[in-house]
C-alpha cells in the first residue's frame, strides 16, 4: 500500500531524512519511532504529500505522493491539530467532507459514525470552547471523512489523558480491523508496541532498525534473569563475571537479594555464591526487554518519553539553515514530555 524508496529530504545543509526505504502492507499498522529530530514527522509529511522529497520515490495507494488522487485516498492527522475555532465540529467536518467531494448525505453518515465512535458530544459547540482531547477527536474524525484507505497519524495520542489515549489506541486497532492501513509515529513507545505490527526506528534521519516489535526486541534486546536469594551471594570472582551489568551488583529488595544475570550459566554462578554465603535461591524470573530498552540500545540515548527538558529538541520540519530568526528560537525550544510518559 505504501512504497518508499531512497527517500531523502534536505533543508539547505540539513538532512532531515536520509536514504529511507520501507514498505507498508495493506491493513497493517506501521509505526515510526525515534527521538526528536529523527525525521519521523518529515517522513509522515512526505507520505501525506505535504512535503516534496528531495530525492527518492514515494508511492501511496498506487499513486505518487504529489498526485491529488493519492490525497483522496489518504487521511492525515498532524501532530498539532489546531482547528478553525469559530466553527462547530459538525460544520468543520462537513467543510472537509465538502472539500473531498463527499455527497452530503454520505458525509453526514460518516461524521455521525465517527463522532459516535469517538464519543464526542457537544457537536454544536464552538471548537474554540472545546478541550484539547475533544479537539483531537474532531481532528481524528476529520481524517476519516473521505473514507481513506491510508491513514497517516503523527502522534495521535499526544497530550491526551490516559482514558482518551486508550480510546484512540483502541480506535486505531479497529481501523486495522476495518482494513485500513495506518502509519503512525509516537513518542510513547507503549503506544507503538500496543498497536503496531511493524516498526522502523529512526535516528538522525536514518532508519536504524526495522521489523516486527518482537523481532527488533530479539535482535537488539537481551533477556535477563532476575535471581532472588535469601542472603547476599558471596562476592567472588565468578559472580562478578556472571553479572549482566558489573556496575549494578546485587541489590537488596525487601527481605531478599536480587542479582540480574544474562544466562543460565550465570544463574548457576549466583546459586553457588548464595550457597557459599549460607543461603539459597528462592526465586528466578525472566525479563524480556521492552521497546524502550531496545530504543536505548539502538540510538544510545533515552527514549523521548523520558526526556526531562533542556535544549536540543529539534523539530526536523523547521528551517535549520541557521537564519537566526524566530524559527531558530522555536527550533531550540525544549520538547515537552508527552502526557502519560513514564
Amino acid at each position: 500500500m505504501i512504497e518508499v524508496a531512497g527517500l531523502r529530504k534536505t533543508y539547505g545543509d540539513f538532512a532531515a531524512v536520509v536514504d529511507s526505504d520501507f514498505s507498508v502492507e495493506e491493513g497493517e499498522v506501521f509505526g515510526i519511532v525515534g527521538p526528536n529530530g529523527a525525521g519521523k514527522t518529515t517522513t509522515l509529511k512526505v507520505l501525506a504529500g505535504l512535503v516534496d522529497p528531495t530525492e527518492g520515490d514515494v508511492e501511496v495507494a498506487g499513486f505518487p505522493s504529489d498526485d491529488p488522487e493519492m490525497r483522496r485516498r489518504l487521511g492525515f492527522l498532524p501532530e498539532e491539530s489546531p482547528l478553525y475555532e469559530e466553527m462547530t465540529p459538525l460544520s468543520y467536518l462537513n467543510f472537509f467532507a465538502d472539500l473531498y467531494d463527499v455527497p452530503s448525505e454520505v458525509a453526514d453518515e460518516r461524521i455521525e459514525a465517527a463522532l459516535d465512535r469517538l464519543e464526542l458530544d457537544h457537536r454544536d459547540r464552538r471548537l474554540g470552547d472545546m478541550s484539547k482531547g475533544m479537539k483531537r477527536k474532531v481532528a481524528i474524525a476529520r481524517s476519516l471523512v473521505n473514507d481513506p484507505d491510508v491513514l497517516v497519524y503523527d502522534e495521535p495520542a499526544s497530550g491526551l489523558d490516559p482514558v482518551t489515549t486508550n480510546s484512540v489506541l483502541e480506535f486505531t486497532r479497529e481501523l486495522r480491523a476495518a482494513g485500513k492501513t495506518v502509519v503512525f509515529s509516537a513518542h510513547n513507545l507503549y503506544h507503538v508496541e500496543s498497536v503496531c505490527d511493524r516498526v522502523v526506528v529512526m535516528n538522525e534521519g536514518r532508519i536504524v532498525a526495522r521489523g516486527s516489535v518482537d523481532g527488533i526486541r530479539e535482535r537488539h534486546g537481551e533477556t535477563t534473569y532476575h535471581v532472588f536469594t535469601d542472603v547476599a551471594p558471596a562476592a567472588g570472582e565468578r559472580l562478578i563475571e556472571a553479572l549482566a551489568d558489573p556496575d549494578a551488583p546485587t541489590e537488596e529488595v525487601g527481605d531478599r537479594f536480587r542479582t540480574v544475570v544474562p544466562d543460565m550459566d550465570a544463574v548457576e554462578a549466583v546459586r553457588a555464591a548464595a550457597a557459599e554465603a549460607g543461603g539459597e535461591v528462592v526465586d528466578i524470573r525472566t525479563r524480556e526487554p521492552s521497546l524502550e530498552d531496545v530504543f536505548l540500545d539502538i540510538v544510545g540515548r533515552p527514549m523521548p518519553g523520558r526526556y526531562t527538558g533542556g535544549g536540543g529538541a529539534v523539530d526536523e520540519t523547521r528551517d535549520t539553515a541557521g537564519d537566526g530568526g524566530e524559527g531558530d528560537d522555536e527550533r531550540n525550544r525544549p520538547a515537552e514530555p508527552p502526557e502519560g510518559a513514564e
Binding site: Y84, F96, Y100, R142
Partner: peptide
Amino acid sequence: LDERTNRRGEPMLVTPLS
C-alpha cells in the same frame, strides 16, 4: 494569517485542492 497561525491551514493542504 489565521491559516498559518498554529498550522490551522495544514489539513487543507492535504486535501485534493491545490
